[in-house]
Amino acid sequence: MVIETLERIGSLTAHGIGIVMVEQNIREAMPMADKLYILAAGERRFEGKPQDVRDDRQIMDIYMGGA
Rank of each mutant, 00 (worst) to 15 (best):
M1L: 14
V2P: 12
I3E: 15
E4T: 08
T5F: 00
T5V: 02
L6A: 01
L6N: 03
E7M: 04
I9T: 00
S11D: 11
S11V: 13
L12N: 08
L12S: 10
L12F: 08
T13W: 00
A14Q: 10
A14L: 05
A14V: 00
H15C: 11
G16S: 06
I17F: 01
V20M: 05
V20H: 12
M21Q: 08
V22M: 00
E23W: 02
E23M: 00
Q24G: 06
Q24D: 06
N25H: 14
N25V: 14
N25D: 15
I26T: 08
I26L: 13
R27V: 01
E28W: 10
E28L: 15
A29L: 05
M30H: 01
M30N: 02
P31M: 00
P31C: 03
M32P: 07
D34F: 01
D34M: 05
D34A: 05
D34C: 01
D34S: 13
K35D: 11
L36G: 04
L36P: 06
L36I: 03
I38T: 03
L39T: 01
L39A: 02
A40N: 11
A40H: 13
A40V: 06
A40K: 10
A40F: 10
A41L: 04
A41E: 15
G42P: 07
E43P: 11
E43A: 10
E43R: 14
R44Q: 15
R44L: 12
R45M: 08
R45Y: 03
F46Q: 08
E47Y: 15
K49W: 05
K49Q: 15
K49F: 12
P50Y: 12
Q51P: 05
Q51V: 09
D52Q: 11
D52R: 09
V53C: 07
R54I: 14
D55Y: 09
D56H: 08
R57T: 14
I59S: 10
I59K: 05
M60A: 12
I62G: 05
I62H: 04
Y63H: 03
Y63A: 03
G65Q: 01
G66R: 13
A67K: 12
A67D: 06
A67L: 12
